[in-house]
Simulated assay, not measured.
Amino acid sequence: MKKIYFFSCFLFLLMFLVACSNGDSSKSNGSQQQDEQEKVNENSKTDSSTSTSNEEYVLKLAHGFPTGAFHHTFMEWFAEDVHNRSDGRLTIDIFPSGQLMPPDQEVPAILQGQIDMSHSSSPVLAGFDPIWNVYELPFIFDYDPKDPGVFLENRIKFNNTENGGQKIAELMEEEGLKVISLGFTDMFGSVFTTSVDNLVTGPESAEGLKLRTPGGMIGPETAKAIGASSTTIAGSEVVTALQQNVVDGLLTTPLYAYDAKLPIKSFSVVPLFNSVTPVIMSLEKFESLPKELQDVLVKSGTALEQYAKEKVNKRALEVYSSMEEEGVEVYYPSEEEIQAWNEATQPARELFKKEVEGGSELLETLESIK
């Protein structure tokens, strides 16, 4: 009887130990499965994060200039710089020569989401917001007639000043545009004439001349201030108008005048307007990009300004020399003549101050950095 009792106890104890062992194993397996599932979930999150950080974007940029001009070649450089800085994640597709729309429709197209970016110009942007007319003003930057770099440095200095170019960029953001770069593709605009007999040495020698001006608010006022009459002629008709003496000359930029083979015989090195060619984009589109790609665009925009300075400075020196070799009379004004020009063109700056909201503040900034 005792044997049966002990055997029963032993059997019960053995069953209890087996049951406990199975329970611990079940708990261990369950815990292991939970850990493995958590690892899978964590890996899934990591893969998702990696996928997001490697997402690629394409921006559509339009401009109205031919492919041989700096306006386009600079955009090719800019697009390559953006692509390299972003490790291929950000691509800019360029549509030149007004393929998609005329230049004056690019800003509305950006705001409507038809395109993402534009390589515009200050005269075109002045039609969107008159604050851009500041770049059409005469003698706003100190310059050296024989050293293009002095003017270019001063223009960049204004562009980078908080209450100068950066103030304009801030105002554009309020209107839905992000200014990526305040670059340029040429020197300042000057007086060119079709004959050395009409060589302009000072404001008094421009009196009575018929000049083609870029139009807008400031150009005609500048011509009027030096005693000339102004007319607006479409770009496609300028060469004919010069050849047929419809006008005696025009206000334009030297690199354009030379590359376009305009029939001019004199060039007076005076800064009568100072256009820039900004890269602008939709603020909404800009803010939709990852922060690191926003930084890429800003850095590439700054790099573009320096690249433009180097290229334009070098090209200007070449063009001045080439014009002289080809028989164009290039006139470099004296300090006294520069002062006379500055005083004579004051009415254009007064008009800007009077007609443009915020104009007085920009002119004060210009004076403070001279």
Rank of each mutant, 00 (worst) to 15 (best):
K2S: 03
K3Y: 03
C9N: 15
F10Q: 12
L11C: 15
L13Q: 11
L14P: 03
L14Y: 04
F16N: 05
L17T: 11
V18M: 14
C20V: 06
S21A: 15
G23D: 13
K27G: 08
K27E: 09
E38T: 08
V40L: 10
S51V: 06
E55V: 02
Y57W: 12
Y57G: 09
Y57P: 11
V58S: 15
K60Y: 08
H71E: 12
V82N: 02
I92V: 14
I94H: 14
I94P: 15
I94F: 12
F95T: 10
G98C: 06
L100V: 15
M101E: 05
P102H: 12
P102A: 13
D104K: 10
A109P: 06
A109Y: 07
I110A: 11
Q112V: 15
D116H: 07
M117I: 13
S118K: 13
A126R: 05
G127F: 13
I131S: 01
V134A: 10
L137E: 03
F141E: 02
Y143D: 01
Y143A: 00
Y143P: 00
D144V: 01
D144S: 02
G149C: 02
N154D: 08
R155N: 03
A169R: 10
L171Y: 04
M172E: 08
G176E: 14
L177G: 04
V179A: 10
G183T: 14
T194K: 04
V196C: 01
N198G: 09
T201N: 06
T201F: 08
T201K: 07
G202S: 05
P203I: 08
L209S: 10
L209Y: 13
L211D: 09
T213R: 11
G216Y: 07
P220C: 10
T222S: 14
S229Y: 08
S230E: 03
A234L: 09
V238Q: 12
V239N: 09
V246E: 14
G249W: 03
L250A: 10
L250E: 14
L250G: 11
T252Y: 10
D259Y: 13
L272V: 12
L272I: 08
N274L: 05
N274M: 06
V276L: 14
V276R: 00
P278R: 02
M281F: 03
S282M: 05
K285N: 05
K285H: 05
P290E: 00
P290G: 00
Q294H: 05
D295V: 00
V296W: 02
L297I: 07
V298F: 03
V298P: 07
G301Q: 04
Y307P: 06
A308I: 06
N313V: 02
S321C: 00
M323I: 01
E326Q: 11
V328E: 02
V330I: 00
E335F: 10
Q339H: 02
A340H: 00
Q346F: 11
K354S: 15
E357L: 14
E357H: 14
G358W: 07
L363I: 13
T365V: 07
S368P: 01
